[in-house]
Structure formats: C-alpha cells, structure tokens
Amino acid sequence: MYRTLTLLSLIFSLGTTLSAQDIETHAYFQIETNKTAYAFGDNINVRDAPNTTGKVLTQIKAGTTLKILDVAGDKLAQKGIEVPWVKVQFLQNGKSQQGYIWSGLLALDRIARDGFEFLLGLTRIENGVYYQEVRIVKQGALLATKEYKSNAEDGHEFGFEVLGNKGVPNISNVIRVYNYMPACLHWTGFSVFLWDGKTLAYIGFEGGTINVGQSWDEIDFIFPEEKGGKQEEGWVVKKVIKGQEDEIGNSVETITTTIWTWDGKQLVHKKEE
C-alpha cells in the first residue's frame, strides 16, 4: 500500500499515534532519601562504608525492598554509569539491617504482578547509548533476564509497564519500556517483550523514527485485544510504515502488514496481509 503526504502531516500522524499510548516517564537515578527502592543486581554486596574497600556485611537478592537512608560517598563509575553510593535499610531473615551499596545496582523501576516482580535496570552506557535490562524475580529467585540496546542517549527519560497478555494465547504479560531520542534523527517508542511465565522474549521496537527532511519509519505491534488486532485468532499484527520525501517536498509511504504467532519462545512469521 502506498500514500503521499506532507512532512507536517507525517509528524502529526506519528505524534498522535505515540501520544495515544500514554505512559508515566521518569529521569534516570532520581535518588531520594526516605524513599523505597528495589535491588536490581543479584547478590549485591552490602558494605560498612560507601566505597569498594568497605567490609562486606552481607549480600542481597534482586527484588529486595530497600529504604534509602542517605546518599553518601563519592560517585563511582562502572560500565559508563557514574552514580553515588547510598545507605540503605532492609529486612533479611526477619531482622532489620543497614549498609552501603552502589546506586547503579538499584532498579530503575519495579512492577509487581501475578506473583512476579518485573524489574527494569540500566546495565551499561557505551558511547552515550543506554543498554537496559528487564529482569523477572519470584520469591527472591531470578527467573529470567533480557538485555537490549535502547538507542536512547543522555538526557532522555524512560517508562515501564506490564500489560497482561493483550489477548495473545499462552502469554502472561506484554512488557513495554519507553525511551526516546530528541535530535534531527528523532525516535520515540517502546522496546517490547513477551513473558509466558518461563520465557522472556524481546520482540522489537514499536514506535516512530524521523530523519527530518529525508525519511521516516513507524512500527506498530497490534495485539489481539487492540483496535485492528486479530482477537479471534490470537494473532499479533506487525505494521511497518517506511517513507521517503521526494524532490518536490511530498512524502511517499509504503505500508507492510504481517501476521505473527507465538511458538512458546518467540514470535513466528505466519503470513502477509
């Protein structure tokens, strides 16, 4: 399918699509005292001082609930992430304990659903690009992890949501992480995952990319429960729009629609539509 439109109408169209998918966003590592946080790293060393030479008092599991008592010590840089140490309080074996951990091992966000804890964390920054990871924990046991390249750069915000199965058979939850990159090459959208209770699969990026004055792309995963979805069959519709501006300022789009099914480990291409 092809259509012609102006660049202005293109930007409006992409903006409308993405704004319809409202999600609460946050800045990275907003550390506040007397606030609740969650451990993202597994078997984190808790020390008696805010540095790597402090004595290890104990270790805590991913998903452990923490209270931030203080931001303490100099910042430590690990894998491109430069953040301070924090003093935390937590329960372990029924006893209240305190100590210091590096705040880069805190979860950016945490959502509890269906007996699982869904954690979002930042694992590294390379050349200004943020690599993030989704982890799933149940009763202190780390069940699944999936790292991915967010493509977002310094200064952006993130969002995190766990949405139920959206009508996909044999799936427990659709998970989406929102990021954006503001620049002449501008993109905004979601990294999308499927969780079936055992397998965590990254299925790709959903959103729009605009290279102003040149080209654009938009990818939508339409789940069975959503408008335009295949609810009776339980199929996932993947809609891809690619566009290029011509020499007189009009923009020509190519729209491709495909149907996908879940095979227990990944989405599998079924047919073109």
Rank of each mutant, 00 (worst) to 15 (best):
T6V: 03
T6I: 05
L7H: 06
L8N: 13
S13E: 15
T17A: 11
Q21K: 14
D22A: 11
H26S: 07
E32C: 05
Y38L: 01
N43V: 06
N45F: 10
N51R: 10
T52V: 09
K61I: 05
A62I: 06
L66I: 10
V71I: 15
V71L: 09
D74N: 15
Q78H: 11
K79T: 02
Q89I: 00
I101M: 08
W102M: 00
I111M: 07
R113Y: 07
R113G: 03
D114C: 03
E117N: 14
F118R: 05
L122M: 13
E126K: 14
E126H: 09
E133P: 00
Q139S: 14
G140C: 08
A144C: 10
T145I: 09
K146Y: 13
G159Q: 12
V162P: 05
N165C: 06
N173D: 15
V177A: 00
N179W: 04
M181Q: 13
K198H: 13
G208E: 03
I210K: 00
I210Y: 07
G213Y: 09
F223E: 04
Q231W: 11
V236G: 00
V237H: 06
K238H: 06
K238A: 03
I241V: 15
G264V: 08
V268S: 05
H269N: 10
E273L: 14
